Computed example of a mutant assay.
Amino acid sequence: MDASAPKPATAGPVPTGYFRWEPEEDDVLICRAVRNETHDVKTFVLAPRQDRQFEFVSGQFMTFEFEINGETIQRCYTISSPPTRRDTVTITVKRVPGGPVSNWLHDEFQPGMMLKATVPMGEFTWSGMQDTKYLFLSGGSGITPMMAMTRAAYDLALISDIEFVHAARSPDDIIFRDELSFMGRRNHWIKPTFICEKDSPFERWSGIRGRFDHAKLQVICPDFKERVVFVCGPAPFMKAVRELFVEAGFDMSRYHQESFNFESFTEEAQEQIAEATEAITTDVKVFQLEFTKTGRTVECPEGLTVLEAARRAGIRVPSSCSKGLCGTCKSKLTSGSVEMKHGGGIRQREIDAGMALLCCSRPKSDLVIER
C-alpha cells in the first residue's frame, strides 16, 4: 500500500465492554477540571457521576441546563474533545459580555460542581465521509468542532490531509494555539495556520495578518477546490466565507457550516413568517399565545411555529438549532396543545409533563406558555 495516499477519516472503532452514559438514567455530569485557554476562554472537563463512557462523533453538541439566580437556562455547546477520549467530554466557552451563562461558567463553575445535559446531537461532522482532504475554517470560539475532529485524527494517527485555518483578533486570542502547533509538528498531515487582525500588547504578530479573503485562501490552500470544507464561527465571519467560496466557483455540496446564533432567523423561519403573514388574509385559524412571564399575548396563524410567532411579536425566546434538536427553547405549556415534530431534543417524560420545543411546535389551540 502507498503510505503517501491519505485514508478516509472515521470516528474510530467503538470499544467493547464499556457502559455508555445514558442521560435517561442519570443526566447529571460533574466538573472534573477547568482549564484556561486564553484571557477570555475556558475549557470545562465533564464526566458522568457513575462509571460510564460517552458515545458521540466529532462535531456534535450537547445541550446543558444551568440553574442561575433561580432561573433555569438551556444552552448548546459543541464538544471540543474527540470521541477517542470517552471518559470525559469538554466544552470550551468564551466569556460574552452580559452573557448570563458564559459569565457564570467563568466566574462560578468549579471542579466538583454539577449540571444536567442531554445526549450528544448534531450533524456537523465528518464521521462516515470517504474524502481524504479537508479544509477547516474557524473564527473565534467556532474552532471547537474542528478541534474535536483534528484531535480524533491525531489520536488515531489517521492519514487525513487537514488544512486548519483559524482567524483571531490577536495572538492572545488564538484558542488551542500551542496544541494545534504541537499536533502539526508531530503529524505532517495536520497543517495549522493562524490569521490575526492585529498585534497583542506583548507580541508582535509575524504571521498572516488581516481578515480572511480569497488572496489568503490561495496562499494557504491553493488546492481548496479539491477539499471538503467545514466552517464555524460568528455569523459575519461565516457569511463572508460562504460568499467567498460561492464567488470562487466552489462545489457547495462539499461545503458545511455550523453556528448557534441566538439572535438571527433561519431562512426557513423567514419563509414561515412570510407565508403566515399572507395566510392571515385567508380563512386560516389564528390562535392566541399567552406568555406568562412577559405578560404578553400574541397571535399565531395556523401552521406557524410558536417560536417564530413570538419573535415576530418582539418576544425574545432563547433558541439555537431551530430543528428540535438542541432543547434550548424548551418551555412549559400550562394550557393548550401543539403539534410537535422534534429531532430528539426533548424526552418523552418531559412531553408527558407538559414541556414542548417552541421551535418545532405549531399550536392546535390557544396556549398558555411559561415564558
Rank of each mutant, 00 (worst) to 15 (best):
I369H: 07
P192V: 00
E179W: 08
K364M: 09
I190G: 04
P301K: 04
I190A: 06
M1R: 10
H256D: 07
Q74W: 04
E24F: 14
P100L: 04
P83T: 00
A313W: 08
L180Q: 04
I91R: 00
M340F: 07
V241N: 11
V228S: 14
G59S: 10
Q60M: 05
L217M: 11
I68L: 07
K293T: 10
T90E: 06
H106D: 10
T292S: 15
I175V: 15
E267P: 10
E22W: 03
E268K: 10
A167P: 06
R204D: 06
G314C: 00
M238V: 10
P8W: 00
I30Y: 03
R296H: 10
F262R: 06
P236I: 01
P48A: 13
K198N: 15
T297H: 11
T292G: 15
P111V: 01
I159L: 04
Y134R: 12
P82R: 01
F260V: 03
M183C: 10
Q272T: 03
S259F: 13
S322Q: 09
A11C: 15
L367Y: 12
P8Y: 00
D155W: 06
A3Y: 02
E24N: 15
Y18P: 05
G99I: 01
F230G: 09
S200R: 07
L217I: 03
E226Q: 12
R20E: 07
V368W: 11
F224D: 01
S331Y: 01
R209W: 02
V286M: 07
Q272N: 11
G336F: 06
P13G: 07
Y134F: 14
H342E: 08
E278V: 00
V57I: 14
K332W: 02
K225N: 13
V246D: 15
D172A: 11
G303W: 06
F194T: 00
I315H: 15
P234T: 04
G233R: 07
D199I: 04
S337Q: 04
M238A: 15
L333P: 04
G354D: 13
T63V: 00
G336W: 09
P145S: 06
T10A: 05
Q257S: 11
Q288I: 03
P82W: 00
Q60N: 08
P6L: 10
G343Q: 13
I351Y: 08
T294R: 09
L180C: 07
E25H: 12
D178N: 13
R204N: 08
Q60G: 08
H342Q: 05
K323P: 05
R52Y: 06
S141Q: 06
L135F: 00
T282G: 09
Q50D: 14
I30K: 09
K225G: 12
G17N: 14
P192F: 05
S331P: 01
R242I: 02
H188L: 05
I79E: 04
T277I: 06
A276H: 05
V298F: 11
D178S: 15
Q74S: 05
S319N: 15
P171F: 11
